[in-house]
């Protein structure tokens, strides 16, 4: 994958290997591994409760791994929180900002926290986001809260921006502003973004790399373009009506009735056509599968852990 910052060998910004986490008897993360290199936008997809926030809390050093290794900038975020967090911009899903502060106080507070705070940039963002400096945090709307949180995450020009469900509960206009900020962040040389979302069109728009999580496990991970190109939605037509769904090689899910069945498949088209021919069927329609279809098919079928895509 070409990235704008690809002058030298790819530099690993985040690496997680074999991460497992239990809360009492409940398995929240199971043997997770992933790697994010510099300049990438890494999109983490999963339904609510899949373990996305738990994973992010490990990256921030808020949880210590029970099993496995977590490194951010090559450092252990639990042992060196200052060196990690000083270079990370973070927007949490619940935007936990001090409610009693005014916006201008919030900015001064954040400026004191980050040595590399860029006051001029912060002011530019505040104007762009149309945040009233005199307004109190507790009186901000959901959208304004998200923008205030994003401002404090961005204004120290972090090397790594981590966004946990940045669009949750936002209207399309604010969502777009958040996405624009992500795009601008990557456009600035060498910045890396790690963001989680359950909105697949959002992930599809801005990610290079995608990881899909379900019940604490990684069901699929890879380059977004390869994942999209490696999956197809094909409709098969059989000479005779079938009483039950056909077993098609490479199919993740099969739905239909009678003579026509539609499958979301992993594999190249010639291979899928050959597999269909073996069943005596003909491929009558073929389309690229959307990320949403792939996600539903993968999560539904409970596919193997960390399986990579076949190109």
């Amino acid at each position: 994958m070409t990235t704008l910052a690809s002058n030298s060998a790819p530099e690993t910004v985040v690496s997680v290997s074999g991460l497992t986490r239990r809360f009492r008897s409940r398995l929240a993360l199971e043997d997770l591994s992933l790697e994010v290199t510099r300049g990438q936008v890494f999109g983490l997809v999963g339904a609510n409760g899949a373990g996305k926030t738990t994973l992010i809390k490990h990256l921030l050093g808020l949880y210590a791994p029970q099993t496995g290794i977590v490194r951010v900038f090559g450092l252990d975020p639990v042992k060196e929180p200052a060196n990690v967090l000083g270079r990370v911009g973070f927007l949490s899903e619940d935007r936990d900002l001090p409610a009693w502060m005014r916006v201008e106080e919030l900015l001064r507070y954040a400026a004191a926290f980050y040595p590399r705070w860029d006051a001029e940039y912060a002011e530019r963002l505040r104007e762009q986001f149309q945040l009233d400096p005199r307004a109190r945090v507790k009186h901000l709307s959901r959208g304004e809260l998200a923008k205030a949180g994003l401002l404090t995450a961005l204004a120290h020009r972090p090397a790594l921006l981590i966004l946990d469900e940045p669009s949750s509960g936002l209207d399309p206009l604010v969502r777009r502003e958040v996405l624009e900020a992500v795009v601008r962040t990557v456009a600035e040389e060498g910045r890396t973004v790690f963001f989680s979302s359950h909105l697949l069109d959002e992930i599809e728009r801005v990610s290079d790399q995608v990881a899909m999580m379900s019940s604490g496990r990684m069901v699929l991970r890879g380059e977004l373009a390869e994942i999209l190109e490696g999956h197809h939605r094909v409709t098969l037509r059989f000479p005779q009506p079938l009483g039950q769904a056909p077993v098609l090689e490479g199919a993740l899910t099969v739905q239909g009735a009678g003579r026509e069945w539609t499958a979301v498949c992993n594999g190249t088209l010639p291979r899928l056509s050959a597999a269909a021919a073996k069943l005596g069927a003909q491929v009558v329609a073929e389309q690229a599968a959307t990320l949403e279809e792939i996600f539903l098919a993968r999560v539904g079928s409970g596919a193997a852990c960390g399986e990579s895509v076949e190109a």
């Binding site: 070409t2 704008l4 300049g39 795009v183 601008r184 990557v186 290079d208």
Partner: peptide
């Protein structure tokens, strides 16, 4: 183009 379409600049580069 990336900012106009709100997509990842790496995608445009590709």
């Amino acid at each position: 183009l990336a900012e106009q379409l709100v997509i990842n600049p790496n995608t445009v580069a590709r």
